[in-house]
Design a protein around this nucleic acid. Structure first.
Lengths: 214, 214
DNA sequence: TTATGTTAGTGTCAATTTAACACTATTACA
DNA sequence: TGTAATAGTGTTAAATTGACACTAACATAA
């Protein structure tokens, strides 16, 4: 058997969050345009660790849900050097210190997935695949909780689902389903926002953990 | 941004087939033990193409369903050189020329997934993950057809499902479900094997294509 | 203080889907 | 001609899903 080939490898991360009722991706400035956060893999570094490191270094987003998505290796995906990219996606809870407030604010930017600027290489396809995967997982896991702040209302959780799926959901059926999953619990406090009836605040029963359904 | 790291990369393929009513993996001989088929990636070769090439070269299995599984990159997964492995799994239809008859017969061997010999590196975990993925896909795709010969009976298809899932299925419910999927059609011919009523032979309506359900 | 606007919260019923279940049909072979 | 073995077939109850509309609670403004 031949020795393994040495290939240029990178990590690319699709950091998702809900911004202004839209599914948004955090992009990093790149020469004239935009790219996904990411970069090289340390000689002795785990792939997951590299993804997390780049996220922290470039976006200051630590402690987020991270999952390997797919490995992109078409020889011509990078017109310069042939590069294999291991793609991840991350879910950033709402309510984290907004990027605008950070010193890196001029290097990154949240962009809605349905109004992305042109991205370098195949990063647009990577975002599209990540979006499909995320949408599919809503049906059989509690993954959406990873996009929520520590305490949230059921209406907010429903809005997140609707935003990702791109379609409205029935309020009563949604609540029935979520509560039956036994993945969230009431905090006892209420959210008083706006001139209307306050909503119960819930929290995840097992924060950070994604449960599979059925 | 730092330049991408050069890393040793390999492809590993889990070639699944049903052998003697068991889910089996085709292993390649490796020094004293066994490993998954696979190897290096050509400098200008697509990852999928590399997986297919290694499969053909080492096992003479061409024209099989192939799907990327996961990329394994723990720094210590190979005690020698640090190596990143892009894992694939392949589904080999029953009824292909049996490996035993090939000139490579002394270099490879089918082993049942529930009686695997010790495999090199983390190849055991790769097989386990591939098995879980395959089992999960039975629920929402027509992927099992990729393990069937060109013509097959419903009982044979059910046996394949049962073998992968490791649990018995109800005959009438199974047949109802499969036929409702509209993914197979009768050939008109009958399978006459053994001293009992012959079974209708079916074929895939869209061979090579995996449809998703619901 | 009262009316209005806005979102929160709740239950039923029909339709569909799922899961359990047993017998007859057809062949080879003894 | 009987026996062994697998093929093939429907019904029913239970569970799940999906559609659907009103009252509750608050802020604000008149």
């Amino acid at each position: 058997m031949l020795p393994p080939t040495l290939l240029a490898m990178t990590i690319d991360v699709v950091p998702f969050a809900i911004c202004a009722e839209r599914l948004a991706v955090l992009l990093a400035r790149h020469s004239a345009g935009w790219r996904l956060p990411g970069g090289s893999i340390g000689a002795d570094e785990d792939l997951d660790a590299a993804a997390r490191r780049h996220l922290v270094e470039q976006t200051e987003l630590g402690e987020v849900y991270l999952e390997q998505l797919y490995t992109f290796g078409q020889p011509d995906r990078d017109p310069g050097q042939r590069t294999v990219a291991v793609a991840y996606y991350a879910l950033v809870p709402a309510g984290r210190p907004p990027v605008d407030a950070l010193p890196i604010a001029d290097r990154v930017r949240w962009a809605s997935v349905d109004a992305l600027p042109a991205l370098t290489l195949d990063h647009g396809e990577i975002v599209a695949l990540a979006h499909r995967r995320l949408a599919a997982k809503l049906a059989y896991s509690t993954i959406a909780l990873q996009l929520m702040p520590e305490r949230f209302t059921l209406s907010e959780l429903q809005a997140v689902h609707e935003t990702i799926l791109g379609e409205p959901l029935d309020k009563r059926n949604f609540r029935k389903r979520i509560l039956a999953l036994d993945c969230i619990e009431v905090t006892g406090d209420m959210a008083r926002r706006g001139g209307h009836r306050p909503a119960r605040l819930y929290r995840a029963k097992r924060p950070g953990q994604v449960d599979f359904i059925k």
